[in-house]
Design a protein around this nucleic acid. Structure first.
Length: 573
DNA sequence: GCCGTTTTCGGCCCGACTGTTTTCAGTCG
């Protein structure tokens, strides 16, 4: 059995199927089954192709005969009969509308059926000319919010999340490296700088033929639909799937200069050019010159060294201030000894305590902090006091197995509207540590929200603040919050703050990490994993920490288990 | 569509907010 569509592709197709079914007014439980299956596929940690091929994927919870067939069809043919027929029935504009906050299926269907609207531009017009506000239970405020939602969606549609971009770039680099006369293909641009969202894919290709000839070879090899903006060194290729990628071609002796140029950022390049100029060099687009002498730069290290600079890791190349500064020792994935923030089957995760413990051990960690949702998170199966006792017994049993990993009893406790936590103090005392997060009431004023957080920070049971600003990248802005006040209070109280490594969040933002460090805040990298596949999130959290210039000493889960225990104890004392 | 020591049918996740209404449907997390 050949597999032509990968795990991420299948997951995305099933999620889209769920949207189609939902918009058609299908049974919500059928829709939910598709959504759950999409998550199961997306979070599958093993060899997905093999599991589809040998049928073992059908054993997964929530995968019955119907979804097994859809998954198999998608994976082996890249198509689905159900998908094709639904796509023909549901206008694509309605799917777009699902991305507007405040618009659900019921309202979209109502808009479609009563006003005959099925595109975003038509919806925008109807919101402006007052037609929308005349609908039952719609009003001026709703129309205004929909206009805001459309604007947000427009802006967001130019970007993609970093994990999607990274996966595309990886596949593209692999395809390009197989093209004749290509010596190497390197992802550059925002993907290489590890920004949280990516607007444009950039690839640097080292080749031993003229660019014009190379673009022809590439077109033949990887299904290019259109070549735009071609000149002697680069071209923008529009690929079959709709992706647009900028390809820059270089001979080996200029790879360093070209890679630096293609990686950016603009501010970094400006600072670098200025530094070069004051040292008697010229950094033109494709090469380095000292006066009129050509300086070969076969790699980036050579270029930075020639300019009297240490090599600057791409993650740090942002506002230009990094040029001329010492390069800090940045945290790496291998520095992390602890795995924090994950959900099990006790709330909305899909693996057991033991499965997670074994998987996390396998990935090379020494300790694990389990944090299911607390009781007010009803939608996520938040834990009632009885569940807690059962889970604690289970964690004790797993620790007794001596798997080579220490499992800590944690909770992701909701911070309620008034800043209180979700259980009485005697229950809170039973946890080894607590991540406190906001999951409701996002629309408070900055003053109210800040007071809410400050009260949570003041609670001695709180170890770490989870996803502190609540943003969902390309979906929802952060709530109003005085972060400086939070940093100062957390730093003083010995409360850690999370970089949530879920690529939909990446919250804290790397731009504020320096400020957090100045306030003495210990940063934890939290995977927010809901299954074993979520272990891979950590890599994105590490990238954000690196962009913020953080080293292992500033990361809570770079400590060993005893160090983590000591941090919790010091905070409680 | 999936699941099952309540197992082949009947149930599946729920509480709170928002914007609209003047009692509540729709949306969200």
């Amino acid at each position: 059995m050949t597999i032509v569509m990968d795990r991420a592709g299948v997951a995305a197709a099933i999620e889209r199927l769920a949207e189609y079914l939902e918009l058609k007014g299908e049974n919500t439980f059928r829709v939910r089954a598709f959504r759950a299956a999409a998550k199961t596929v997306d979070g599958y940690a093993g060899d997905f192709a093999a599991a589809v091929a040998d049928g073992s994927f059908a054993q997964m919870k929530g995968i019955g005969p119907a979804l097994r067939d859809v998954i198999t069809e998608l994976a082996t043919t890249g198509r689905s009969e159900l998908f094709e027929s639904l796509r023909a029935e549901v206008p694509p504009g309605l799917v777009d509308m699902l991305g507007i906050s405040g618009l659900g299926v019921a309202r979209i269907r109502q808009i479609h059926e009563t006003l005959g609207i099925d595109t975003l531009p038509d919806l925008e017009a109807a919101a402006r000319d007052g037609r929308l506000a005349t609908l039952p239970r719609f009003g001026a405020r709703t129309a205004e919010n929909i206009l805001k939602g459309i604007a947000f969606l427009r802006q967001a549609s130019q970007w993609r999340l970093c994990h999607h971009a990274a996966e595309e770039a990886r596949a593209l680099a692999e395809a390009l490296s197989r093209v004749p006369h290509v010596l190497a293909a390197h992802p550059a641009g925002e993907v290489r700088r590890r920004t949280e969202v990516v607007r444009e894919l950039v690839m640097v290709v080292v080749a031993d033929v003229a660019p014009e000839e190379l673009f022809r070879l590439i077109s033949d090899a990887i299904g290019v639909r259109e070549i735009a903006g071609q000149d002697e060194r680069h071209a923008t290729l529009k690929l079959g799937g709709g992706t647009s990628v900028q390809v820059v071609v270089t001979p080996p002796q200029n790879l360093g200069a070209v890679l630096v140029q293609a990686t950016g950022s603009d501010a970094h390049l400006a600072a670098l050019a200025e530094h070069a100029r004051t040292n008697g060099f010229t950094l033109a687009g494709t090469a380095l010159w000292e006066g009129s002498r050509f300086v070969p730069t076969p790699d980036e290290q050579t270029l930075y060294r020639a300019l009297g600079l240490p090599w600057i890791p791409p993650e740090l190349r942002e506002d230009g201030s990094e040029v001329g500064r010492p390069v800090p020792r940045l945290v790496e994935r291998a520095d992390l000894k602890g795995f924090l923030h994950c959900h099990t089957t006790y709330s909305d995760g899909s693996n057991s305590v033991e499965e997670l413990a074994r998987g996390v051990r396998e990935a090379g960690y020494d300790w694990l902090g389990i944090t299911d949702h607390s009781r007010s998170a009803g939608y996520a199966g938040g834990m009632q006091p009885d569940d807690l006792r059962r889970q604690w017994d289970e964690i004790d049993a797993v620790n007794a197995l001596q798997l080579g990993i220490t499992v800590f009893k944690g909770i992701e406790s909701d911070i309620l509207a008034d800043g209180a936590l979700d259980y009485p103090d005697d229950v809170l005392d039973g946890f080894d540590f607590i991540i406190a997060s906001v999951h409701s009431r996002f629309t408070m004023s900055e003053q109210e929200m800040t007071a809410r957080f400050l009260r949570a920070i003041a609670h001695p049971a709180v170890t770490i603040l989870g996803h502190p600003t609540g943003r969902l990248l390309l979906q929802r802005d952060a709530y109003a919050l005085d972060l400086d006040a939070i940093f100062d209070a957390a730093g003083a109280a010995g409360v850690g703050i999370e970089i949530n490594a879920d690529p939909h969040r990446l919250d804290l933002d790397w731009r504020v990490l320096r400020r957090a460090r100045e306030a003495g805040v210990m940063i934890s990298i939290g995977a927010d994993a809901h299954n074993l596949g979520g272990l891979a999130n950590v890599e994105y959290g590490v990238a954000i920490a690196r962009k913020g210039g953080l080293g292992p000493d500033e990361i809570l889960n770079a400590r060993d288990a005893a160090g983590f225990r000591a941090f919790v104890a010091a905070r409680r004392a």
